[in-house]
C-alpha cells in the first residue's frame, strides 16, 4: 500500500505535526520504503487467530475511590512554558475577537 503525498499531509495533521513541503516529500519516500517491508504481514492468513494486545493476561486494576495526595499544583506547573494564576495558559480555542 503506497502512501501518497496527500496522505502524508493528512496523517501529519492527524499527528499534529507542521511539516515543510520538503519533509512531506522525504517522509513519503521513507514511509513507503518501510511500508514495503512491513506489508509482508498482509500476506499472512490470520483470520482464525486472536489478536494479542498485551503479552500477559492482565486485568483491569481498581482501587477504592478515595482522595489521595497527588502532585502539588506548583510542582505540576513547574515545567509549563506559560502559566498564570496557577493554571496553564493556552491560546484561545473557540472563535476569536469580542463575540467569542
Amino acid at each position: 500500500m503506497a502512501i501518497s503525498e496527500q496522505q502524508v499531509r493528512h496523517v501529519a495533521m492527524l499527528a499534529r505535526l507542521a511539516l515543510t513541503d520538503e519533509q512531506v516529500v522525504h517522509l513519503g519516500e521513507e514511509l513507503n520504503s518501510i511500508l514495503d517491508h512491513i506489508d509482508t504481514i498482509q500476506q499472512l492468513d490470520l483470520a482464525e487467530v486472536e489478536p494479542t494486545a498485551h503479552a500477559l493476561d492482565v486485568v483491569n486494576v481498581t482501587r477504592s475511590d478515595e482522595v489521595r495526595p497527588g502532585l502539588e499544583r506548583e510542582v505540576a506547573l513547574r515545567n509549563a512554558p506559560e502559566t498564570e494564576d496557577g493554571a496553564f495558559v493556552i491560546p484561545r480555542i473557540v472563535g476569536g475577537g469580542e463575540e467569542a
Partner: peptide
C-alpha cells in the same frame, strides 16, 4: 509518529494494527 498514526488511521487499522496483533499471537 507518522508511521504509527498512519497504521492506526481510518481504513488502515485492521490491515496494519489488527494484523500485527494477530502476528504477535503467533
Amino acid at each position: 509518529i507518522m508511521l504509527g498514526t498512519y497504521a492506526l488511521s481510518a481504513g488502515y487499522y485492521d490491515a496494519y494494527y489488527g494484523q500485527a496483533q494477530k502476528a504477535r499471537t503467533l
